[in-house]
Amino acid sequence: MRGGKNLSTDYMLTVNGKQTEFKENQTVRNFLEEKGLEPQKVVLELNKEILSRENWSETILQDGDSLEIISFVGGG
């Protein structure tokens, strides 16, 4: 336990390999919106499983989750 720190902001998740803070009871969709991402343009993997778009509003992020946010880029 870290002394003096507000526990409600102490939730960490790994996003694209980086440790990132998130709010308690935050849904995946809400997290994406907060990051300024257009939901239609990205694909998600939550803990190595693809999370289909229909489930983003119901899925609540958990401490220690690993999230991959993926999109298309140029390639040959």
Partner: peptide, 28 residues
């Protein structure tokens, strides 16, 4: 063709799909 990569959360870029005509077959 296109490739699949992690989104860079630190830099806002346009999405490539907005620039590819919808009547072409996309081959990731």
């Amino acid at each position: 063709t296109v490739a699949v990569r992690r989104v860079d959360l630190d830099s806002k870029t346009d999405n490539i799909l907005d620039f590819i005509p919808k009547d072409v077959v996309l081959m990731p």
